[in-house]
């Protein structure tokens, strides 16, 4: 419950920053993908189940604020969160290199999915343009910004969620 509450706060802060603040720091119309960072971090830190739920809620938030067909983002992010959850075993506190690799790959997969279902389907065949002009810059920008954001998310995870879980276990014993 406590974990869900913390993640919910992260998501609300994320969507607000994403839509109202990041337009000021966008480069060439591209800004880091904050909700994807939250999803990847949740999956990597807490496992498949947590990654899946976080991805689902993040995706629904994106769907609701976007004004298009509902459910597509939710589906994509849910799978990304779930798949990242498989790597929970490799979680090391304070490490940023491996999660950044995950974040980069996830962002690229997410972008490819958006391209397939939003653009290719309407006959935009020039995938090279999309990769060069939008996907790669977005991966780069998300990873660079992700270093700072992930550090914050990691601190939140270790100091709030892990300590809370430990406390619960002690109470049980």
């Amino acid at each position: 419950m406590f974990t869900a509450f913390i993640i919910a706060i992260e998501i609300i802060a994320g969507i607000l920053l994403q839509t109202a603040v990041f337009p000021y720091i966008e480069i060439g119309g591209i800004a880091p993908d904050l909700l994807l960072m939250i999803t990847v971090a949740a999956g990597y830190q807490m496992g498949r189940s947590a990654g899946m739920w976080t991805g689902l809620v993040c995706g629904l938030m994106l769907d609701f604020t976007n004004g298009g067909v509902l459910g597509a983002y939710a589906l994509f992010l849910m799978f990304i969160g779930y798949l990242n959850g498989y790597l929970k075993a490799y979680y090391v506190p304070n490490d940023t290199l491996f999660p950044m690799l995950l974040l980069g790959v996830s962002e690229f997969v997410f972008d490819i999915l958006i391209y397939l279902f939003e653009f290719l389907i309407r006959g935009r065949l020039n995938i090279i343009f999309f990769i060069r002009r939008i996907m790669l810059p977005k991966v780069l920008y998300t990873v660079v910004a992700g270093i700072v954001v992930y550090m914050i998310l990691d601190i939140i995870y270790r100091h709030l969620i892990l300590t809370h879980q430990k406390k619960l276990e002690e109470q049980k014993q």
């Binding site: 839509t19 109202a20 990041f22 591209i30 800004a31 004004g67 939008i134």
Partner: peptide, 14 residues
């Protein structure tokens, strides 16, 4: 204008 899409794919705003 209070919010803008930053995904790079759309040109929508709120």
């Amino acid at each position: 204008v209070i919010a803008k899409d930053t995904s790079g794919y759309y040109a929508t705003f709120t």
